[in-house]
Simulated assay, not measured.
Amino acid sequence: MRPTHVGLVMDGNRRWARAAGHDDPRIGHRHGAEHVEDFLAWCAARDLQHLTIYVLSADNIRKRPGPEVDHLFTLLATTIPRILEQPAGEWALHVSGDRSLLPPATAEALAEAERRTADRPRHCTLAIAYDGHRDIVEGIRAALLSSSDGEVDVDAITAGLGGGPVKEIDLVIRTSGELRLSGFFPWQSAHAELFVSSKLWPAFTERDLDRALAHFAEVRSAR
């Protein structure tokens, strides 16, 4: 049994950099961003169709030091589009979050990557400048605007959420050993299984992904 939609909270870039002897956390962020390419390839090889990856929260933008956030914006404008836009790539990019918090160049680079990958068969949603509460509010607002009688239901709210075509997340993988979701898509992951890896994100391996998928299969088959 395989999940239809896998969520990933990729945590531990700064700790990985310190453990590797680097004082600059930006080195960890760069390795973490580049590691997304590996993860996408592993997921495609296992015929996973839908991914949602937590990249950057709105709180992180507001609270982390300026140079560190500026570096993250640069990675989002360069590394992430390069990974997703490869000619042989299979993943359509979707961005979920408050784009008004992003510099114009970063927002435009991501929007262009969305346009260039729109017709691809697999779907990867990146949570960028993301806030879980705001996400739900926007889903409710969209549902109300599309309602002819002012009535909304769960399906209408779900349809109004951002991201790829399949909203409900079946499995959430959290790296770095932290036992919390950090506001990761609370509506979409309400019924998800959780797999926590002690590995810091840049050290997360293909075998670790297989462990997460095996955990999902074991838990769901036991029900």
Results as ranks from 00 to 15, higher is better:
D153Y: 00
R141M: 03
R62Q: 10
A77C: 09
G89I: 03
W16Y: 00
A19I: 00
S57E: 12
S197T: 11
L209K: 02
P25V: 01
R46Y: 12
Y54S: 15
A33H: 01
E138D: 09
R207H: 14
D208R: 10
E193K: 09
D59F: 04
G160R: 00
T4Q: 15
S189N: 05
S176Y: 10
G89A: 12
A111Y: 06
L145S: 09
A45S: 10
L144T: 04
L161W: 05
R46G: 08
L8S: 01
S57C: 13
P165L: 06
P65H: 05
I140M: 08
P121T: 07
H31G: 14
R220L: 11
G139Y: 13
G160T: 02
D119C: 01
L40M: 08
G164T: 04
A192C: 08
F39V: 11
R207P: 08
R2S: 07
L213A: 04
D38Y: 15
Q188G: 14
L145Q: 08
L161N: 06
L72P: 13
S96A: 15
V219R: 13
R122P: 02
I83Y: 03
P87N: 01
L181D: 02
L93T: 13
A88V: 15
E193H: 10
A156R: 12
R64M: 15
R223Q: 09
S176L: 06
W201Q: 06
E68T: 12
V137E: 13
E218P: 07
E151T: 15
D153G: 07
R211W: 14
T79K: 07
D153F: 04
M1C: 06
L161D: 03
L110C: 00
G162L: 03
A88K: 14
A88G: 15
R26P: 02
G139D: 09
A118L: 07
L56A: 14
R223S: 02
R99M: 11
A33T: 00
S146Y: 00
I83H: 03
E151R: 08
M10Q: 08
G21N: 06
T175R: 02
V154L: 10
P103Q: 09
R30S: 05
A159R: 14
I83E: 04
P65N: 07
V154A: 14
V9L: 11
A58Q: 08
E138I: 01
G164Q: 06
C124E: 08
G163S: 12
D149F: 03
H191Q: 15
H29L: 11
S221I: 14
D59T: 11
T158E: 13
V166I: 15
L76K: 00
V219H: 07
L110R: 00
A105T: 10
D149G: 06
W187N: 11
R120K: 04
D70E: 14
L75I: 13
G177A: 12
R30W: 07
D38W: 14
R220K: 13
R116F: 09
D47Y: 00
L181A: 05
I83F: 00
A33V: 01
